[in-house]
Design a binder for these strands. Structure first.
Lengths: 219, 219
DNA sequence: CCATAATTTCACTAATTTATCATAATTTGA
DNA sequence: TCAAATTATGATAAATTAGTGAAATTATGG
């Protein structure tokens, strides 16, 4: 999980950064709105001050929202309440007034992240439905029985759709990361998963000399 | 469902209103305590600021509570903590300090509404009936004797139907949080619960490598 | 304090899942 | 087109996991 911290004051950035790193978030930084917009696409969540040079936070937020819909927590000085409220109309997830307690900010970041992660209860593509809560997979409303590994593999593919995944990457992430497996093992599991996915088997494409990719092909 | 929004600041009302409308609530507005009391009888739930002119929120709340017992969420500035605590004694359902996140407010409104909307006293599926008030379970109107753990487990399953529950989750929630149990313990209890549920035993499905799931299968 | 019920543990079995390997099929590029 | 490289597949052995009965332990009510 990557947090983009956008604030013109280095001190503030450093404090938040410290806490974020302590909570196992990766950190990106921006010191103005333009930088924030540029870095937003790599972020999973954004913490952004409203008052920034070059481009203010709300304008930056609007642009980011349109492009990436990244969840965002805004920071503001107490006096800027009007801005805050205007911001909420746009769909800001939360905000805090400065000075704030970094602990509370972390709590809110965690809450927002959780909310966003939890919102995606399932993945749906045409007749294929993967219910992450129920750990079940359906095709045309009929449940498909997957083995645990098949399911884990499918979920990993879905969470990384469009990305070519090397066998090593798959082994590290779907298997225990210190697992020393054979490359053919993955082939076998991909085979089984494809068979289970039936008519959706070609959502998983082979990337020769590399690995596999889960891809939704626009028709 | 109608929400009465009582706050003297139009801006705040507008923001909340926006969100409520987006969540399919109808909206009534009041800008002071007296107005709030007058409009309360048409409201299903009230969101009210403590600090308001003419009549403050807590006084308004007391009057409304006596007459209509409408569920209420109070808003307050951070500094008014004492008021908040006094308010809870009166039976307030929830409160939020300003500045607050409208999304969170919506979540709380939804929660309160759900709680009031005739909390489900029992769970019924075909001939299976679980009476939460009486802590009893029936199949075809004949009472089934469950041990306390079996009952707790069943209730937890029902409250999380459709969700795959890990053994750890079950241990943490059905047993004491710090209970360090054996995986076979859960299996054994599931076994006993299944036996007790007789023809409904397969409402509990095994989620391999993970745990169990209570699921109503559409036929 | 005892008798009974409830809960937990444990060892074993049954069932399922996973890994490996040999071989077939496919792709690539010279 | 063919050889080399790579991936797909099927069969099977190995490993893992859940189900179960019985024994041991713990709680409960009289």
């Amino acid at each position: 999980m990557k947090v983009l911290i956008a604030d013109d004051e280095k001190l503030i950035r450093d404090v938040i950064k410290e806490y974020c790193l302590g909570n196992n978030y990766e950190v990106l930084e921006a010191e103005n709105g333009i930088e924030a917009v540029n870095k937003a696409k790599d972020a999973d969540i954004i913490v952004m001050d409203i008052m920034m040079p070059k481009m203010d936070g709300l304008s930056a937020y609007k642009q980011i929202k349109e492009k990436y819909n990244t969840p965002t927590i805004m920071l503001s000085a107490r006096s800027e309440e009007y801005d805050i409220l205007a911001g909420f109309d746009l769909g800001i997830d939360d905000y805090m007034t400065k000075p704030f307690s970094p602990k509370e900010l972390m709590a809110r970041i965690n809450a927002v992240v959780k909310r966003y992660k939890g919102e995606e209860d399932c993945f749906i593509y045409k007749d294929l439905k993967v219910d992450f809560l129920g750990h079940s997979v359906y095709i045309k409303d009929k449940e498909i029985e997957l083995t645990p590994k098949e399911y884990d593999l499918l979920v990993y593919f879905i969470n990384n759709k469009g990305i070519a995944l090397s066998r090593e990457q798959l082994l590290n992430n779907v298997w225990n990361y210190d697992y020393l497996g054979n490359d053919r093992t993955i082939d076998t599991h991909v085979k089984m998963l494809r068979n289970s996915l039936k008519e959706y088997r070609n959502l998983i494409t082979t990337v020769r000399r590399m690995g596999y990719k889960f891809e939704i092909k626009e028709v």
